[in-house]
Design a protein around this nucleic acid. Structure first.
Lengths: 126, 126
DNA sequence: TCAATCTATATGACACGTCATTCAATGACA
DNA sequence: TGTCATTGAATGACGTGTCATATAGATTGA
């Protein structure tokens, strides 16, 4: 039997879905159009940009994002191919890699971040 | 410059992302394991199940879901292939189709809905 | 009534994410 | 030290979503 609570849960869930998808789509389109990178690429850039320490980070990145380890790896592939980020080997654990923004990456990030925040405000803050 | 408000927005956004992804993944896995359908398939089933009127619905479905029209079409393909739903032509507009649950679809939906609601409660209500 | 246009759905090419696996490096412990 | 398990990351096969387009039916207006 569908209880009232069930219906409320479903409503709540649909509303989360809609706001998530609408916001994500809006940001994705804008970043794609203006900076030629997708939302996931930006989010990785953003995480790298806010990591001031130079700890080995591919792993850490995976923990701060809902993306899979392999998704992160592929996003980083694209960022690296685009010359925005570079993979550096870790001296203390040679399995690990950490990421560094290139100058181009830093520049693009700081422009894109403005757009990103503005769209978040528009869609979340309303 | 990163203002405090910016940081709050980003935090809020990440928290939405996480709760969305965690919940979606949990439901998806459970439905996949127990009923062999994905979350999107279930959501279409759910929409069809709650449409009591027999209006032409493919179109209407598209409006109640963040999915693309073409995504809906493919999800329905799979549901039809699985024998859970059937496409019916519309007499008043032969371009349109409406969907009907098969008996198997109705049965699966009512079981899966219990699971779905329970997981929503667990993840959203907590 | 016949174009021109619009609308509902389907489809194919493509991009991207996931899973399972692989590979190399590390750690643990006998 | 040598084996065995574990860990960080990359990769290939695959499924599914998106975009652009195709198709068929509807609508409009001359």
């Amino acid at each position: 039997m569908a209880t009232t609570q069930d219906r409320q849960l479903v409503e709540q869930w649909r509303s989360i879905q809609n706001s998530y998808f609408r916001t994500a789509a809006a940001i994705d389109r804008a970043l794609e159009a203006k900076f030629d990178i997708g939302l996931n690429e930006f989010e990785i850039l953003d995480l790298v940009a806010e990591s001031v320490d130079s700890a080995c980070r591919m792993k850490a990145l995976g923990e701060r994002t809902p993306m899979t380890q392999s998704a992160v790896s592929k996003v980083v592939d694209r960022l690296e191919k685009a010359g925005l980020v570079s993979r550096q080997t870790c001296s203390d654990d040679r399995r690990s890699l950490y990421l560094e923004l290139t100058d181009a990456g830093r520049a693009l990030h700081s422009d894109a971040a403005v757009e990103h925040r503005a769209l978040l405000k528009e869609n979340l803050g309303e």
